[in-house]
């Protein structure tokens, strides 16, 4: 991200929710990420836009320290993911691409498990779970097994789960894939509202262009490289296209 570099220097590190600088990653000979840099500030809703296989999931795995980044640096609220992983991981909530709830356990049991992984006391967890579950209007489903919930409901539970420990950075990897239009809209609006109200920084990975609204920030990634980033309008203007869809096609096509 060209402009990202300068803004790192201009901002105090503590104001940056997520700062990725020059991160590359290989799987054997395959270059999954190539010098990726990007910057997210608190309250930013940033869309990571790319086709399947562009490197989005690899980037998420590095941010969440499922793998170590071997080059460049990743910082979350000023904490390096490698050297200060405990502090860094505490700030993030993650919704993975694949469903990760235990189907045979109830919604509350799933959320309790997550709370314990963050060392939250039972009493505290109860309050936080009630609060998050009320926010997604699933209070009456708490005792039900996850297996009996619809795909959209499960996703909402996963988002609630990612927020229980009150993270300041929310990472979502293709959260709306496989859902119907209604559920997609519900989840998208929910996260966008959270972002505005709670000053939550959000990185939303998708290949669905219609999830991007005016004025939002977009990072376009293809074959492990960041092709462009910034406001939707800026990218559209720069690429001399009519809308972000055309801009994306143009950018990705050029590189193919």
């Amino acid at each position: 991200m060209g402009c990202g570099h300068q803004s790192v220097n201009n901002f105090n590190m503590s104001t940056s929710a997520l700062s990725i600088k020059n991160v590359s990653h290989n799987f054997g000979d395959f270059k999954a990420l190539d010098k990726v840099s990007l910057e997210i500030r608190p309250g930013d809703f940033t869309v990571l836009l790319g086709l399947n296989g562009a490197g989005k999931t690899t980037l998420y795995s590095l941010i969440t320290r499922l793998y170590n980044n071997n080059s460049g640096s990743i910082e979350i609220y000023g904490n390096n993911v490698r050297s200060e992983s405990v502090k860094a991981l505490r700030h993030i909530g993650v919704v993975f691409q694949q469903p990760t709830l235990d189907l045979d356990l109830s919604v509350r049991e799933n959320l309790n498990y997550h709370s314990s992984l963050h060392g939250i006391s039972k009493l505290d967890a109860r309050k936080k779970i009630d609060k998050e579950i009320a926010r997604i209007n699933l209070n009456d489903q708490l005792k039900k097994k996850v297996r009996s919930l619809s795909g959209g409901q499960r996703r909402r539970v996963e988002i609630a789960r990612a927020l229980i420990h009150e993270p300041k950075l929310l990472l979502l990897d293709e959260p709306t894939v496989g859902l119907d239009i209604g559920s997609r809209q519900l989840i998208l609006n929910h996260v966008k509202t959270l972002c505005k109200k709670n000053k939550l920084a959000v990185l939303w990975a998708t290949h669905l262009i219609d999830e991007i609204d005016k004025g939002e920030k977009v990072v376009i990634i293809d074959k492990g490289k960041v092709l462009d980033s910034g406001n939707v309008e800026k990218i559209v203007k720069k690429t001399k296209t009519k809308n972000i869809r055309e801009a994306f096609n143009k950018l990705v096509d050029i590189k193919i």
């Binding site: 969440t64 320290r65 499922l66 469903p99 992984l117």
Partner: peptide, 12 residues
Amino acid sequence: MGSMKTMLVSPI
């Protein structure tokens, strides 16, 4: 299924 991932991203 990914639930191992949820465990591994815990700060513990």
